[in-house]
């Protein structure tokens, strides 16, 4: 693990470098006080050497922790076994998300199948009932003769039989629609696992970035500040998931209509 991240050189000075520098400094002052400038410069050179050694040691330490962090992220270019495992975890996540798409698509199609079946059934009941209604009204008003009544009686029997069958079909379609919603549970579980993986990867990446930053700083490498490569304002973004927090998006159809009418639509 990258437990040494961002830490300053150990204050207890285990390598003894600080003690060495102090000793050199003291000896340099001593030499200067004695008027021995040449010797003092030699000590200064020694000091420079000690500085370089400290720098290299620190750089080495950070490089090691960077390497560890990268290994934690399992993206070694050498494709060690661990890495393949990680890559397969990512491809596993892609597979899982693909599964979510296919499950939601199936559910949507199943639901639409049922709705398409149910609509004509409901329409048929409605139309037959609408057809019978005027004749039934005549019965209520006593404006029907026996022959008409017998015909209506038969029609009514057929209608009732038909309605029993049709409403059974409708109930069946409705419960199938209900069952088709089971995708929510299944896809929810899958998505949760993928979110977990993304979070793990993010925290490993943050470790790498932190350590790399310290190495760069110490080595005097200057990287230009991250530029905000802003996307064109009209690039497709997909559904907006945080509408209430954004001022550049419309909150719904009413907003769209207002905006368009302000443009002369």
């Amino acid at each position: 693990m990258s437990d040494n991240l961002n830490s300053t050189p150990d204050p207890t000075d285990p390598a003894g470098t600080r003690a060495e520098i102090i000793a050199h400094a003291k000896s340099m002052v001593e030499k200067l006080e004695n008027g021995d400038s040449l010797e003092a410069f030699k000590v200064l050179e020694e000091l420079n050497r000690a500085k370089d050694v400290t720098l290299f040691e620190e750089l080495g330490r950070l490089t090691r922790s960077l390497h560890n962090a990268i290994t934690d992220f399992h993206i070694d270019i050498g494709l060690a076994q661990e890495d393949q495992k990680e890559i397969s975890r990512i491809s596993d996540a892609s597979d899982r998300l693909g599964y979510v798409i296919s499950l939601t698509e199936d559910a949507a199609n199943k639901t639409m199948d049922m709705v398409e079946e149910a609509i004509p059934t409901a329409k048929k009941i409605q139309m037959t009932a609408a057809d019978l209604k005027p004749e039934w009204d005549k019965v209520l008003k006593g404006e029907i003769d026996p022959a008409q009544f017998r015909a209506l009686h038969t029609k009514m029997g057929v209608f009732l039989d038909g309605t029993i069958t049709a409403s059974e079909e409708l109930s069946q379609s409705l419960s199938n629609i209900l069952l088709a919603q089971d995708y929510q549970d299944l896809t929810g579980q899958v998505i949760k696992r993928v979110i977990q993986l993304v979070q793990e990867l993010e925290s490993s990446l943050v470790d790498i970035v932190k350590t790399a930053g310290t190495v760069e700083e110490l080595a005097g490498i200057e990287t230009s500040a991250l530029t905000d490569d802003a996307k064109p304002a009209t690039e497709a973004e997909g559904p907006i998931i945080n509408k209430e927090k954004r001022s550049d998006v419309v909150s719904g159809q009413d907003d769209v209509d207002d905006l368009l009418s302000s443009l002369g639509f």
Binding site: A233, A236, D248, V250, V256, L259
Partner: peptide, 24 residues
């Protein structure tokens, strides 16, 4: 589902006849 104001303006300028945001 694209709901940015700039997008709606761009579509209007490009000559769209109507704009419906999902879900509708």
């Amino acid at each position: 589902a694209e709901a940015k104001k700039d997008q709606i303006i761009e579509a209007a300028q490009a000559g769209v006849n109507g704009y419906v945001v999902k879900p509708f």
